[in-house]
């Protein structure tokens, strides 16, 4: 499936200003039908605005939105086959769970028996049958979220938009709901677009991620691509931990404060930065053949499945499994292998 078929979404040259704030800058994206796509970025990066433009709750200054190959930029929200799960859920406080879920069908004047059937099916799917006659203020946070989900999904939208749907849940529940959401999307096979500032959440649920900053998309790709090959310092640091090492290009390698480092590819700049994730640094008793650095443990932080070691020189952050035990002051060889060093594209 691709972005031309039903449920495929294309954004072209999107721009939006609020007063003097440039909230969305030249964003173009393609989301194939059936994909779980995530807009990831810190608060105020324009991701929610972009989602609202897709929903029809905000009009872009420039750019077009195409759904299934058709231009929907000038269609009102009421005529888009797109539904939204709001950050606050925005449930109707005066209506029961059943009537909340039925709202989209009633406003399009569906016959009562079809409403009963479709609402019943969604409530069952999300385990809400018992709650049907309750009002939103009698529900827990997790239940409210599922009602919001059911209320959107009952309309069988071509694209489901989710605006930080987990932010009101506690950490434990959030992890569980992330997995459930992923399974739900795979079962339904619909296009989901999620907005979040939580990189773990983005990586758990998404087929592809677009990282946003200051209104622009700075990198997009599968979670692995974005994590393994961050293009900028911001992406490297926003998705997980990263060691950033600066230096000058010398003889196809990099001269840094830590010493000379061989690289796999020649950087496009003469002076710049490379990144390496803490768990990619290998530890050795004896000097490795290439890119070895003699390190001294300054601090050990226990994280459950592994330790974070803060090393001199640097400080370099290294992740080590729990079966290797270190104390501050221990000395060890670190290997920053050339194939693990990611050349960042900004100088």
């Amino acid at each position: 499936m691709d972005s031309e078929s039903g449920g495929g979404l294309v954004l072209q040259g999107m721009n939006k200003h609020f007063g003097r704030v440039h909230a969305v800058r030249d964003v173009s994206l393609e989301v194939p039908a059936g994909e779980f796509f995530t807009l990831l970025g810190p608060s105020g990066c324009g991701k929610t605005t972009l989602l609202r433009i897709i929903a029809g709750l905000e009009m872009p200054d420039e750019g077009r939105v195409l759904l299934g190959g058709k231009d929907i930029t000038d269609l009102p929200a009421t005529r888009r086959q797109v539904n939204t799960v709001f950050q606050s859920y925005a449930l109707f406080p005066h209506l029961t769970v059943f009537e909340n879920v039925a709202f989209g069908l009633r406003s399009r004047k569906f016959p009562q028996d079809e409403i009963n059937e479709r609402v019943g099916k969604r409530l069952e799917m999300l385990g809400l049958e018992e709650m049907a006659q309750r009002r939103p203020d009698q529900l827990s946070g997790g239940q409210k979220q599922r009602v919001a989900l059911a209320r959107a999904l009952v309309n069988e939208p071509e694209v489901l938009l989710l605006d930080e749907p987990m932010s009101a849940l506690d950490a434990k529940l959030r992890a569980q709901v992330q997995v459930e959401l992923r399974r739900l999307q795979q079962k339904l096979g619909r296009t989901f677009i999620l907005v979040t500032h939580d990189q773990d959440e983005a990586m758990v649920v998404s087929d592809r991620i677009a990282v946003m900053r200051d209104g622009a998309v700075i990198q997009s790709g599968t979670p692995e691509e974005v994590y393994d090959a961050p293009r900028t310092r911001f992406v490297a640091e926003f998705l997980g931990a990263a060691n950033l090492i600066s230096g000058k290009v010398v003889d196809g390698g990099l001269q840094t404060e830590l010493g000379f480092l061989h690289l796999e590819e020649t950087p496009p700049w003469s002076q710049g930065t490379v990144a390496i994730r803490p768990e990619w640094i290998r530890l050795h008793e004896s000097p490795p053949a290439q890119n070895g650095i003699r390190g001294r443990v300054r601090e050990v932080i226990f994280r459950g499945t592994d330790y974070d070691l803060w090393m001199e020189p640097g400080p370099l952050r290294v992740r080590s499994h729990t079966y290797k035990h270190f104390k501050p002051g221990d000395e060890i060889w670190l290997e920053l292998a050339p194939d693990e060093l990611v050349v960042l594209h900004e100088a």
């Binding site: 929200a77 797109v82 539904n83 709001f86 925005a90 709202f103 309309n155």
Partner: peptide, 13 residues
Amino acid sequence: QEIEEAARDLFAS
């Protein structure tokens, strides 16, 4: 604002 937006999002005239 959000509650009315939600209604519009759910096709309310």
